[in-house]
Design a protein around this nucleic acid. Structure first.
Lengths: 212, 212
DNA sequence: CGAGAAAAGTTGTCGCTGTCAACATAGAGG
DNA sequence: CCTCTATGTTGACAGCGACAACTTTTCTCG
């Protein structure tokens, strides 16, 4: 819209990215095709190749956009001046689940099988790392304040990430079977509370052995 | 092997299922094709259609096999006569992660996007439900013994499932970045310990509000 | 035992897809 | 003005999923 018609046909690159998201949201990720995308946008079947090396590259660009907005969503969920570090951690978890479910089409691309092979490649890995670091930072702060046990913060972050990631995946795939009264947001809250309770620095009486 | 050569060309159905797994393990799930599968097995490109309605049906059969063996793996992980219910729960979690990582090709099919639309359909849903019930049962036992807080056991099970599912997905996609000394099995142990610590029935001092 | 039905496999075809190669056009810069 | 490069188009090819029609094998049952 903004800078369209300025060049040959406008900024086709961003148009393709947006249309891909709309397509995936409507018909799922498995049936998406470059040719169909070009058709919907109104260009020839080979025009996308001027902006993306191949189909995977287009999906990777969608994913990279996703990780950036995910990072923003997570950063925006915490209150920087708050000293409720556990609350911040829980807020990050809830925000993560909310982002994944609201942007489920993008999320499917970000963690879909098409990108699973090249997922350690930059700049996709860098974008994903930024989002991960928001989580690590919150854990480090909680450890400094003494409300989170002092194990390797990255290790804790990986587990917290796995928890919310699993919630999003199951929710997107419709396998959470949400009963009325158990909204997804409530489950996310409950899950993050459960984890943060387990993260307490004192050893719980049920756990005869020290953790780790 | 067992009942081969008895009919036209042997039991093509199972041969196709096995070959599909081998293919996915080698080259990923995105590039699999019915025609290539038939080629590898040595039949014509349309022979698979005598055993599976379409490509999705074949993948669904692979997934159904997977959920059955997953159920067996989880059931085998717990010691029925033990009274260490938290230990049983943790063992289920570790077994789940182990199954997913060892059978990563099958796991990708079970939770891949091809089946995400029809995932509530039987008998796939029933097979998945069996695996889920192993988890619920362990939680109910722990609640009866008083070592797990008495919230809705299915709700707790969904969260535990999300945790281990997320771990498997991230591990399979190579996004767990396992540092030396942090083996996946150790992370799975740590994660399940963390969760079971959070599941303790007493309220932790850090949590000013009662959970739920 | 023998004919017909049903199961299992094959060949042929269609439209669609990803990708490569060659060609066309529009703006930029000398 | 003329060329260079970025962008978009047309054409082609092999591979794919799926359907239809045909053949071969096995089973069933009178």
């Amino acid at each position: 819209m903004s800078q369209k018609e300025t060049y040959h046909h406008g900024d086709l690159r961003q148009t393709l990215l947006n249309e891909a998201l709309a397509w995936i949201a409507q018909e799922g990720i498995s049936n998406i095709s470059l040719r169909g995308l070009a058709r919907r946008v109104g260009v020839s079947h080979n025009a996308p190749y001027r902006h993306f090396e191949d189909k995977t590259a287009l999906l990777a660009a969608v994913a990279a956009e996703g990780f950036q907005s995910l990072t923003a969503a997570l950063s925006g969920a915490i209150s920087q001046d708050s000293t409720d570090y556990l609350g911040n951690l829980e807020a990050i978890g809830v925000a993560y689940v909310g982002y994944g479910v609201q942007n489920f089409a993008r999320y499917r691309v970000m963690f879909g099988p098409a990108l699973s092979e090249c997922h350690q490649r930059s700049p996709l890995a860098a974008a994903a790392g930024d989002a991960f670091n928001v989580l690590v930072e919150a854990i480090v702060q909680g450890q400094a304040a003494g409300v989170i046990r002092r194990d390797n913060p990255e290790k804790i972050a990986r587990i917290a990430w796995a928890l919310v990631h699993g919630l999003v995946m199951l929710a997107i795939d419709g396998q959470l079977s949400l009963t009325p009264g158990d909204s997804l947001e409530e489950i996310a809250h409950y899950a993050t509370r459960l984890l943060s309770a387990g993260l307490a620095p004192w050893r719980s009486p049920a756990d005869g052995q020290p953790l780790q």
